[in-house]
């Protein structure tokens, strides 16, 4: 096959995938609030996502806070404004790195897990079993997980914000020679409550993406265990890309709406 033909096929496959993914997402709307709501299941899913993804989120956000702080201190020292590192780190973490890092970690850890779990349920016919036991699998498996992701990702993001700032603080004290109280004062001066809102809203949106893409991957898995593996890999790749791409548009939107 020629390169052009190969490329063409890929593009068609991508468009088809996105189309089917959208239809899947739309088919959830009519059953979103239909009873039963399976609150217990949602809580358990949130707990699972928390347990599995928290260590990754904690380590990565703390490390990023440290690195960001190192670079900023280096730069700001040249202007004699080293204490503004608190503002630089605080704002970058809360607005950008907290939500994006958290979403990527959850996608890699829990999104892939959801895909694998539902995929194996699909190929072993457990999803059909739910159906014939008169339990709507979309409601029971899909809606509960999407809702759980939409709650868990913002929660984890809040922790990531906290840990990222802590990492920055650590460097500010040791490398920047800033007193802890000054660092925190500057942080609170520049990072206001309202600044948390766009980040957390983005996190909820990323959570929705993770939930939809990963449940779709599992539901459409076919062809035994290899099929489940393929679906899982694709879930992580697709969600990561969607997180980056949607981040651009969401950030732009919030800048227009909230002026920063």
């Amino acid at each position: 096959m020629t390169l052009a033909a190969e490329l063409g096929n890929r593009v068609i496959a991508l468009i088809r995938y996105l189309g089917e993914l959208s239809l899947f997402a739309l088919s959830i709307l009519p059953i979103l609030f239909r009873k039963p709501l399976f609150f217990g299941l949602i809580i358990r899913q949130i707990r699972d996502i928390g347990i599995y993804s928290f260590p990754l989120v904690a380590i990565s956000s703390f490390a990023i806070g440290i690195v960001l702080s190192m670079h900023s201190i280096h730069l700001l020292k040249q202007f004699g404004a080293v204490h503004y590192v608190a503002a630089a780190v605080g704002l970058s973490v809360v607005k950008e790195l907290g939500p994006v890092l958290t979403a990527l970690m959850v996608a890699g850890r829990s999104g892939s897990g959801i895909s694998a779990e539902l995929g194996s349920m699909r190929v072993t016919r457990q999803i059909d079993a739910l159906q014939v036991l008169a339990v709507n699998p979309m409601k029971y498996l899909v809606v509960t997980r999407i809702v759980a992701c939409m709650i868990a990702v913002p929660l984890l993001t809040a922790f990531a914000d906290l840990l990222g700032i802590t990492g920055g603080l650590l460097m500010g004290i040791t490398r920047g020679g800033i007193s802890p109280s000054l660092y925190l004062d500057i942080t609170f001066e520049f990072v206001e409550m309202i600044d948390l809102v766009p980040g957390l809203l983005k996190a909820a949106f990323f959570g929705m993406l993770i939930g939809i893409v990963s449940t779709y991957g599992g539901f459409t898995a076919s062809g035994g265990t290899t099929g489940v593996g393929t679906a899982t890999t694709r879930t992580v790749v697709v969600t990561s890309l969607m997180i980056f791409i949607s981040d651009v548009f969401l950030s732009q939107t919030f800048i227009v709406l909230l002026g920063g």
Binding site: E117, M121, Q126, D128, A129, L133
Partner: peptide, 27 residues
């Protein structure tokens, strides 16, 4: 129909995240 017709799958299709008790108790 689903409430009054039982279906036994070829591969059993038990919920593998649930105990035996929870599988049978589920419906």
């Amino acid at each position: 129909i689903w409430r009054s017709v039982g279906f036994l799958f070829q591969g059993a299709a038990l919920f593998d995240s649930m105990s035996v008790r929870d599988n049978i108790a589920f419906p």
